[in-house]
Design a protein around this nucleic acid. Structure first.
Length: 864
RNA sequence: GCCCGGGUGGUGGAAUGGCAGACACGACGGUCUUAGAAGCCGUUAUCGAAAGAUGUGCAGGUUCAAGUCCUGUCCCGGGCACCA
């Protein structure tokens, strides 16, 4: 089974075992009720034209080690891979070359698959998935229909980022520093009809359920910050012109209500028109024009300088009847809270800056409690800390937290306010004006046709229809979902992949796909240019031209891996019950918010409809660190510091690359690539080879068949089994490797060693360097594949030595060490110490003030 | 500005409050060789001839004992950013 090379010939060994694993389908996983399952998942790659980046094998090696280790520990392991294959680059390539994005995507996948296979990962290739495969798209669309049915999808005309160069809409996350992430082109605001998912309905659960997952703290914090929950109150201010009703504001500080000296509404606030007095009209119009022309970037860039304009109108403070001027300023955002605030300049930095700039009154209503504060600090405004109320009528003297509660309750009684919670999280803009994405399984129809379809009952409709009014025609269109059984809705062939440039995707240029006669009783359709088929159930319909963003496919792929070829459901109940959700998920921190938040949202929806049994998709999450170039800079083509895995595999072998990536430092750390480092681990693998195989290609003569193992070596063997196992469990691969190096060095120094010793080393190393592992395992005479061998056990009793080293300190300073029997008490150790002249001299004639003794570790004598 | 990480030899890094620098890389010396490569053996934090002293960004503190805990501060990296 093994090769016959005499030297460590990785170029021969690695392909040999890769085809062995392939042919024997060694890593196929099937549900096995007799064994515990373990599902270890990588963030699946986008198959870019550039091929595998060195960051991919870093994370993938980590999960592969876990997968191989867990298999050896007797788990039934699910370790799959697939392709997140929709995306803008393939479409841009198509625009440039005119070739179908699918063919470019398939080429890239072929290259990625070759590269990943050459790394020897133990994926179950029977479960490979591709998000662009119609059999996959079908279920992505099906999940969308579930969201739609529950009222979690809607359309909205809203300002989006428009990139004239790419002729498409971009999401916030696709914009970096005011330019498109892809290409770096300028972007601007434009209003378009968009699909939006109501993720805000899940804000509270997305926040509170973070406590149940084992994730890096920093990632949880980022999600918390993104969701941005804040508790406060909505307060109603009567307007002086009573015919205009009330002005509703959101505040987290209702306790400062007596300090409100002006109000601010956003430039886009609906009351702007009616609040503006004739005298202020010109100034307000000028200000609004200016605000509208500013991009968001400019708006935030000019953050330091506040600007605004007075409306001429006043509101009435509900607690004291004060007349408060109402201003317009762009530091208040229409998208958060109510788009209006009460400004308390004494206790808010932004309000303070604004008040100073426009010479508005500043009234202190909170005094600090902290007695240790200097008089100057107590006087300083704005003061945003906690304290006691002053100048606040009947509430003066109360602690601020108490005042918050009472004032909110009192206002609530008068129907002038209520306690409320606000989130920074916005609904998720879910459509793109592109070709290369999942089409929405939705038809736009007229109201009477929608009613007819509703009666026919073929499609599952939301309680409230999703509609939009076309401003130019005045027609209100109704969104009719396709029946689930007709899915997938596939992409048509197009002449050009260029977006229409009018805000619609290239799909708008395919009339036969777009305009239909649709049969509400069967779900059948024919192009609209054909005559209307006979029968009352045929209606006129237009397909949705938007496609879904790339996030759609990656939101649920971990579920498809459970049962990838199922054509009845996205996964069978049995598969869902057995495999559940990933036990470990490894991927880059760049997905800390968006992908992981979106996937959690979809998973919770699936949980709510009873489609999955767990509330959270990813129990344990780990981020691998970025590997920097040799120069300590981020790898990039322009810097010329990119390391290509193929090159390393050719020069040093996959096992060396894998081992080096893991030895480089802690998995989560950002660390620079060092070409000399790969030589080091490569030498180590050579050393292991020589420990196992002699120059003649036969097992090394130093391996003793009969002699009992040396006790010290045997103890080290057990220690190494323990340490490597513990480190793998904790994803501390760098220290696991160093322990194996220590063991290998000890074997090399020994005159002879047991066969068990070298087998142990090979086996512990195998998850890291699986090809060398299999080769040596077979060459040492084992007949079954190492991939099926159980993990070696260690005997805790063997770890205990008879003698222990005790460090001797005098006044906390290291003064040497002595050896004492294990478990020796303080008195016994003191006895040994006094018996050694070196130590006895140190305490001679001194007063022993105190003795600190940690058994088996340290003896610290405090003397005078 | 706010929220997270992190600063340890020439380099990557190791260290449940208990011997700082494991394991490697690099460098230097030796061995083998006609020579080299690969092995193998040794040295390698700093100062010092040595004994010893000093040493984990900086300044303090807690402790018998601090890289580790606390306070302040500087620097680097990541995230968020007028969110009321």
């Amino acid at each position: 089974m093994a090769t016959h090379c005499k030297e460590y010939d990785f170029l021969q060994i690695e392909p040999h075992w890769q085809s062995f694993w392939d042919q024997t389908r060694a890593f196929r996983s099937e549900p096995d009720p007799s064994r515990q399952k373990y599902y270890v998942l990588d963030m699946f790659p986008y198959p870019s034209g550039a091929g595998l980046h060195i960051g991919h094998p870093e994370g993938y090696t980590a999960t592969d080690i876990i997968a191989r280790y867990k298999r050896a520990k007797g788990f039934s392991v699910l370790h799959p891979i697939g392709w997140d294959a929709f995306g803008l680059p393939a479409e841009q390539h198509a625009v440039k070359t005119g070739t179908h994005p699918a063919s470019n995507t398939q080429n890239n996948i072929t290259n990625f698959r070759r590269q990943i296979k050459s790394l020897g990962f133990s994926y179950d290739w029977n479960r490979e998935i591709d998000t662009t495969d119609p059999r996959y798209v079908r279920w992505t669309q099906w999940i969308f229909l579930q969201l739609f049915k529950r009222g979690l999808a809607y359309v909205d005309e809203r300002p989006v980022w428009w990139c004239p160069e790419l002729r498409t809409v971009l999401a916030n996350e696709e914009i970096v520093d005011g330019r498109s992430e892809v290409g770096g082109f300028p972007v601007e605001r434009r209003n378009l009809r968009q699909w939006v998912l109501r993720i805000t309905a899940y804000a509270e659960r997305l926040l509170t359920d973070l406590k149940d997952v084992d994730w890096p703290d920093s990632t949880k914090r980022m999600q918390e910050a993104w969701i941005g929950r804040s508790e406060g109150a909505e307060l109603l201010f009567r307007l002086e012109n009573e015919s205009l009703g009330d002005l509703k504001v959101f505040t987290t500080r209702p306790d400062t209500l007596y300090g409100a000296t002006y109000m601010v509404i956003a430039p886009e606030h609906p009351l702007v028109e009616s609040l503006t007095t004739p005298e202020q009209r010109a100034a307000v119009d000028a200000y609004r024009r200016k605000a509208a022309s500013k991009s968001d970037l400019e708006r935030t860039d000019l953050a330091k300088e506040k600007s605004g304009v007075f409306t001429g109108s006043f509101a009435i403070n509900p607690v004291n009847g004060d007349r408060i001027p109402i201003w317009i300023a762009d530091y208040v955002l229409m998208g958060y809270g109510t788009g209006a605030i009460m400004a308390v300049p004494a206790h808010d930095e932004r309000d303070y800056d604004f008040a100073v700039q426009y010479d508005l009154p500043i009234v202190r209503v909170i005094e600090p409690n902290d007695a240790s504060m200097s008089p100057e600090a107590r006087e300083k405004l704005p003061f945003v800390g906690d304290g006691r109320l002053v100048n606040s009528g009947p509430y003066s003297g109360l602690d601020w937290s108490e005042a918050k509660k009472r004032m909110t309750a009192d206002l609530s009684e008068q129907k002038r306010g209520r306690a409320t919670v606000n989130y920074k999280l916005r609904d998720w803009l879910f459509s793109r004006q592109r070709y290369w994405g999942e089409p929405f399984p939705v038809l736009w129809v007229r109201e009477e046709d929608y009613q007819q379809a509703a009666t026919a009952g073929l499609s599952e409709l939301p309680q409230e229809p999703v509609t939009y009014r076309d401003a130019s025609s005045g027609i209100t269109w109704f969104a009719l979902p396709l029946p689930a059984k007709t899915l997938p809705l596939t992409l048509p062939e197009v002449q050009s992949y260029l977006p229409s440039g009018t805000g619609e995707s290239p799909l708008a240029n395919v009339p036969d796909w777009l305009e239909l006669w649709y049969d509400v009783s069967t779900g059948n359709s024919v192009p609209a240019r054909a005559p209307r088929p006979a029968g009352a159930s045929w209606i006129r319909a237009r397909r949705e031209t938007n496609t879904m963003p790339q996030w759609a496919g990656s939101c649920w792929y971990y579920l498809r891996f459970l049962d990838p070829s199922n054509s009845e459901a996205f996964a069978s109940k049995e598969a869902l019950r057995y495999w559940g959700v990933p036990d470990l998920y490894v991927g880059g921190a760049e997905h800390a918010v968006l992908h992981l938040l979106y996937a959690r949202f979809w998973h919770k929806v699936l949980f709510d409809i009873g489609a999955v049994p767990q509330e959270e998709p990813f129990k344990k999450l780990f981020h691998q660190g970025i590997i920097l170039g040799e120069d300590g800079e981020k790898m990039s083509k322009s810097r010329g510091n990119v390391v290509n895995p193929d090159t390393i595999i050719a020069s040093h072998g996959t096992d060396s690359l894998r081992l080096y990536l893991m030895f480089l430092g802690p998995l989560e750390a950002m660390k620079p690539w060092n070409p000399r480092g790969i030589e080091g681990v490569h030498r180590f693998l050579h050393k292991v080879w020589r420990l196992a195989i002699g120059q003649d290609g036969q097992p090394n003569a130093k391996i003793s068949p009969i002699a009992p193992p040396a006790p010290a070596l045997e103890k080290l063997r057990h220690e190494t089994i323990r340490k490597v196992g513990e480190d793998i469990e904790a994803l501390r691969f760098n220290t696991a490797i160093s322990q194996m190096m220590i063991f290998a060095n000890a074997l090399q120094e020994a005159a002879s060693y047991s066969r068990e010793s070298i087998l142990t080393l090979v086996q512990l190393l195998a998850p890291f360097a699986p090809h060398l592992g299999e080769e040596l395992w077979a060459r040492l005479g084992e007949t079954a594949s190492l991939s099926t061998a159980p993990w070696p056990a260690y005997d805790p009793a063997r770890l205990v030595a008879t003698e222990q080293k005790v460090v001797v300190q005098i006044n906390g300073k290291h003064r040497g060490e002595l050896h004492a029997p294990v478990g020796a008490a303080q008195d016994a150790v003191m006895g040994i110490l006094r018996g050694q002249p070196k130590f006895a001299a140190l305490i001679e004639g001194k007063t022993l003030k105190r003795t600190v003794f940690v058994p088996g570790k340290i003896l610290n004598l405090v003397i005078e």
